[in-house]
Design a protein around this nucleic acid. Structure first.
Lengths: 194, 194
DNA sequence: GAATTAAATCAACACCTGTTGACTTAGCCG
DNA sequence: CGGCTAAGTCAACAGGTGTTGATTTAATTC
């Protein structure tokens, strides 16, 4: 959090970034329809009109958060099929790795607003092109599509249950985290082989 | 669909049911915030005012759809742990069984509106009390809570991917359905044992 | 220092939201 | 038939939505 009341330099790219950051946090916790542009503007310390001006409207802002915020290879990191279960398991358990955390946040944002008519279209395109596509290609083989779907389903299910349904009890104490990670790794592996 | 323009008898319980049915279909396809009361009223062929009058508001209508529509033991059917994987597998593959279909629809409705502030609270209570609670009790043992969470996560993940993200490719031809069911059964079993 | 241009603000718009009160109508009972 | 009650309709409300044009303010350039 920065102190913006002292001085506010007139920097277009900075306020654009501030708006996008505020939108990211809002969309992370509420759905597309729930969030109002005035909420986001208030968080960013900016007038509402700037949002429609800079992003061309609410839909454009959401697209900027979902699509433009990531680097293009964010979901293409694992290079071998053997790496996949461990990669997904690390994704669902919370740790300090900032990049992984950001990646999981993108999934939550998508899950939150997937039901909205306008946001849903953006999200579905993104999921097919940038997540399911590379994943299917990496897995390969006859049933690669089914396997990719199952992996993503587990990932999203855990995400839904944790952050949206607010169900905990996945990992409590310190050493339970490691055990829980191993169980998830095993589950993702089962989705690939069984 | 019935032809209601011909004659419309004045039946309070019938119109109440019509409103609830229309709301069910709307909430099945859009989120709580997306759906407007005027949409539901239009589908039911009723004036908007009747909704607030009969259900005490939008929130009450949603609660009536989610909570009151089911019979209480809808999610307590399986009696043994061994039955669980098959039960969940049958739940996710579409078939003609009307009761199973209705049960899965309830999950989708919950998934769609879980992110809304008002609807989310209703849903979280329901999930904990009527789904996760009985499931944990049935599984039993030290890690029963974790197991129940994993099962529900897979179920919801598949639901999200299919109906909200509109991802198909789970089952194509006729005999693929049976094979797909078996794979899901295997996956749910893995969540219990691995 | 004045002119110019971009950045930020203000105010208002048209529209849609859920909800409520007053009103009208249909159906039943005596 | 006349009265009565419940069922349904109509209109309007207060509040909120995203968006846009005109305006003001700050920073840069000549």
């Amino acid at each position: 959090m920065e102190r913006e009341t002292v001085i506010k330099k007139r920097d277009a790219v900075a306020t654009r970034a501030a708006i996008r950051a505020a939108a990211h946090q809002r969309f992370l916790r509420e759905s597309y329809d729930s969030v109002g542009l005035r909420d986001i503007a208030g968080d960013a310390g900016v007038d509402v009109a700037l949002i429609s001006r800079y992003f061309g409207g609410k839909e454009g802002l959401f697209r900027a958060v979902v699509v433009d915020e990531k680097d293009p290879d964010l979901f293409r990191e694992p290079k071998t099929v053997a790496e996949l279960p461990g990669f997904f398991a690390q994704l669902v358990v919370e740790d300090e790795d900032e990049e992984r955390q950001h990646r999981m946040e993108m999934f939550i944002i998508m899950l939150r607003s997937a039901s909205s008519a306008k946001a849903g279209e953006i999200i579905r395109d993104f999921v097919h092109r940038d997540v399911l596509g590379p994943l299917t290609e990496l897995i390969g083989g006859d049933e690669s599509e089914l396997r990719a779907n199952m992996l993503l389903a587990i990932l999203m299910g855990i995400g839904v249950l944790r952050t949206i349904m607010m169900v905990d009890g996945f990992a409590g104490s310190e050493e339970e985290v490691a055990e829980c990670t191993e169980r998830f790794r095993c589950l993702f592996a089962a989705a690939l082989t069984c």
